[in-house]
Design a protein around this nucleic acid. Structure first.
Lengths: 204, 204
DNA sequence: GTCTATAGAAGGATAGAC
DNA sequence: GTCTATCCTTCTATAGAC
């Protein structure tokens, strides 16, 4: 039987992740103090150092685990689709929107706090980010090869699509004008336009 | 005749703008100290307060003047085009890319430091930003009205296009694989795809 | 596992000499 | 217009009691 002599360490560790994610996203890494985080967790500042060696590592761990979850989730999700590039791209777009809208704070941090990482930590995150971009590039490349996509530049199309999809996070609000499903549909249409695969006009 | 008793105030004022822009972009507003800025300018920290009442106002002035220059520049530039929505959109895309690539640091700040503005300052910048988005929305609306653009949602298309164009700033490097003119061409192609006006495929 | 207390450094901003 | 000096606050991180 597990030892539980009054300790609440695991819960505190979880609470720390949650509090730090929320506060870093809201105010920025540099603007948030360990005391603020501690107050949000409900402990004193000193107690945080049982769970992280320092503030920098706290940020890094948040970003790395977020990116890893993203990569793992797509790894699983992509298994649901056939090899058809169009189906894969649709799957990717819907997956990206849904995943990112579910983790607004972590996504925000992953995009905004890169410059606050130490050099070594930065390159780890940059590699994960590139791995994710490669997932999309692979799909686009296959589509161009199969003649169903029409693209001038593979790399720039990758950047464009990820930028426009991730941009959703800056304006989307639950209970807003559009629900998530509608947003997916509209963006899918625009992405298909980017890759030269828009079949709406002159449908014959 | 102007009084110039050994004063270098105007130059220092300019240097302060430049130094703050560079350092805020590089490390983030919250992470940069007034002492660092002063060192970059080449004066002592106290001297900065001759040019700004406080750090917050320094940030706000940078952002506001950047956004105002953007709006003014498009006001001028847009006069160069006829009423043809396609020509206007091409003009906007090329203008946006060129303007933003010329001011990487100021653009970065305008996108990253919104959360470090006081409430009142934030709403000023938010209004300027919306004014800029409206410039694009107007073009898209005219194009839809004229039947040359095919869009599911005007607002989301506006967000998408601005997000993908501004994303260029995160990867573009002078002397990189592509020059600015080529980038403009490639993005123009993708934007035309987004608005359902891509005439490359099945060109008949 | 958490607290209190604190060391030691750095921050924004001001006062007064020059 | 700028400098030096400094006030006062806040920060990260650690030490030791419980």
């Amino acid at each position: 039987m597990a030892r539980k002599t009054g300790s609440s360490g695991e819960k505190t560790a979880r609470d720390l992740q949650i509090a730090a994610t929320k506060l870093f996203a809201r105010h920025g890494y540099a603007a948030v103090s360990m005391r603020q985080i501690a107050a949000e967790v409900g402990v004193q500042a000193g107690a945080l150092y049982l769970y992280t060696p320092d503030k920098q590592t706290l940020l890094f761990d948040l970003m790395r685990s977020h990116m890893q979850e993203l990569l793992d989730a797509w790894e699983v999700e992509s298994g649901n689709f056939s090899d058809d590039p169009k189906a894969l791209l649709e799957g990717f777009v819907r997956f990206h929107i849904r995943f990112h809208l579910k983790r607004v704070d972590a996504v925000f941090i992953a995009y905004m706090e890169l410059r606050n990482l130490s050099d070594q930590n930065f390159s780890t995150i940059a590699n994960q980010r590139q791995a994710y971009e490669n997932c999309l590039s692979k799909i686009l490349k296959a589509g161009v090869g199969a003649g169903v996509f029409d693209l001038v530049d593979l790399k720039l199309a990758t950047f464009s699509i990820i930028a426009m999809l991730t941009g959703i996070n800056t304006w989307f609000r639950d209970r807003g004008r559009l629900d998530s499903e509608t947003v997916e549909h509209i963006y899918l249409d625009m992405v298909m336009g980017v890759v030269g695969c828009k079949s709406r006009r002159r449908p014959d």
